[in-house]
Design a binder for these strands. Structure first.
Length: 142
RNA sequence: ACUGCGAACUACUCCAUCGCCAGCUGAACUUGUCCUUUUGGGCUCGUGAGGUUGGAGGAAAGUCCGGACAACGUAGAGCGCCGCACCACCUAACGGGUGGGACUCCUGUAAAACGGAGGCCAGAGAGUGUCACAGAAAAUUACCGUCCUGAGCAAUCGGGAUAAGGGUGAAAACGUGCGGUAAGAGCGCACGGCGCUGCUUGGCAACAAGUAGGGCGGAUAAACCUUGCGGGUUGAAAUGUCAUGUACACCGGUGCUGUCCCGAGUCAUCGGGGCAAAAGGGCUGCUCGCCCGAGCCGGGGGGUAGGCAGCUAGAGGCCGUCCGUGAGGCCGGCCCCAGAUAAAUGAUGGAGCCCGCUUCGGCGGAGUACAGAAUCCGGCUUAUUGGUUUGCAGUGCUU
C-alpha cells in the first residue's frame, strides 16, 4: 500500500529557497504544469523531496479559484508521488520541487493528474536515472 | 392565491474511498536522571501508530471610520494642522445606531392634515473674495421710461430727481392695496411674508404656537474664514522571548606541561627523541622576572536561519424574566464555537436537490451567486444566487 499522505515535513516552506528556484533552478513543462527543481544535500532525517504548488495571481485573480487549483495539483502530487519516492530510496540528495500552474483556465482533475504522472516520469528520466544507473542496477519498472 | 415594497434566517444535502490542520488522549520507541538491582519502576526531553472532538464568511472583501491591545513619546500653555457639526438618547467608542425636530421633493387636498422619500441641516445679520451668458446694473446699479428744470422755433441736447412700469436673467433689493408726491419710493398706514431680539405657553432639547419691539440685510462656507467640540505618533511585518551553526565586539585564564623511550648521573636532576590542541616576540651580556602575543579553553553580548509567546474565553454566543416607543440595558441559566504561517478547512466517484431541453423514456449543465479567516471586536460601504419564515399595501376568490 503506497503512502498517500502529505504532511508538513514534505512541504517546501522557505521563501528563500522558492525564490532561488526561479533564479537558479532547472525546469520543464508538461501542460498545464511546469516543474522547477534543484538538488541540495540531504538534511538529518529529511525526506527525499520537498514540494509546493504555485498559481499565478496574474492568471487567476480570485483567491478562491487559486485555492481550488492548488488543491487539485496538490492532490495529484499526493496520489502519485510514491512512484518517484520508490526510485529515490537510496538517493543521497534532497530535491526541492515547485509546480507552477501555467494554464489560464480551471482544468479538470483528471487532466492535471495525467500531466503530473507524465511529469514525474520525465523528471526521473532527465535527472536521476543517468546518475543512478552507473552505481546501482535499476530494477525494471513495474 | 398572486403582485409590489421591506425585515429576519439560511448558504446545497447524503454515502463511499483517499487525505489536510488544531486540541485532548495515547500503544510503542527514544534522551537524561533517580530508585532498585530480579523481571523492573518513577520522573523527564523528543518522535508518535491509533482513538476522539472541532475546522471559512455574511460579507472572511474594500481597508473607509471607531475602539481594545502594544511599543515609543509626554511639565503646562498658545499657535498651527486634521476631523466632526439640528436636538436628545444608545454605546467601550464612532463619522455608527435609535427616537424626535426643521427643510426639500412626491402623493394627497379647496387649503390642510395624514402618508412616503432624501441628506456634509453650525454661521452669509463678523470680515475678505467670487458670481458664466444675458443685462444699464449681480450689490449701493439706471438703458428705456416717469417727473422737474435749462437751451432751442423745432427735431433735439444738457443738468437734476426717481426706482412704480418695460426689458435681461437662475436670481434685480419684501408682496398686495390705499395714502402720499413734481414723479416716485416701507416714505407712511392696513393686511400678509421673512428672519433678529425679548417675553409667555408646551417640550430635557432641537423646535412649535402666541406676543411685543425694532427691521427688510441676493447667492456661495464643496472659496478663504468664524464659532463650538474632539484629536500624541506608529501598527501584529506591533511587541516580547529562546537561540543551533558560521563569523565577530568585549572580558578572564592559558600561552606550557604531562607521559613514554634512550643515555648520563654525585640519585637532586640533566640531555635527546616520540606522542598529546598549542609559533613566538620585547626588556637583557646571561638567568630569574615582567610585558605583548598567534593559538587554545571558558565567559559573554548583539543577533541570522528557525522556534515560542502575542493567538484566540471574548465590549463572546444562545435562551428567558423585567425595564425602555426604540437603539439598547439589568439580572438569571446554559454553552465553548477555526487558529493556519507560503499558509489547513479538501480531492475523486455515486445518489438526491436545482437549472435548461424533452418524443416524458431520458439527455445536458452546475465546486450552483458574490466570494477564502491571518491580532481581536463594533460599525459603514460595495458584490451577490436560490430557498424558508414574516410585516405592510393592492388585486382576486371563498364564507
Amino acid at each position: 500500500m503506497p503512502d498517500f499522505t502529505f504532511k508538513k515535513a514534505e512541504r517546501l516552506k522557505s521563501l528563500k529557497i522558492i525564490g532561488g528556484l526561479f533564479k537558479d533552478g532547472q525546469s520543464f513543462g508538461v501542460y498545464p504544469l511546469r516543474l522547477f527543481w534543484s538538488a541540495q544535500p540531504m538534511p538529518e532525517g529529511g525526506l527525499p523531496v520537498q514540494f509546493t504548488v504555485s498559481v499565478a495571481k496574474k492568471n487567476f485573480k480570485s483567491a478562491v479559484a487559486r485555492n481550488r487549483i492548488k488543491r487539485k495539483v496538490r492532490e495529484a502530487w499526493r496520489l502519485n508521488k510514491h512512484r518517484l519516492y520508490r526510485k529515490l530510496e537510496d538517493n543521497p540528495q534532497q530535491y526541492v520541487c515547485m509546480v507552477l500552474y501555467v494554464a489560464k483556465e480551471d482544468l479538470p482533475s483528471s487532466q492535471i493528474e495525467k500531466a503530473m504522472q507524465t511529469m514525474i516520469h520525465l523528471f526521473f528520466k532527465k535527472n536521476i536515472a543517468p546518475a543512478n544507473n552507473q552505481i546501482i542496477d535499476e530494477p525494471p519498472l513495474s
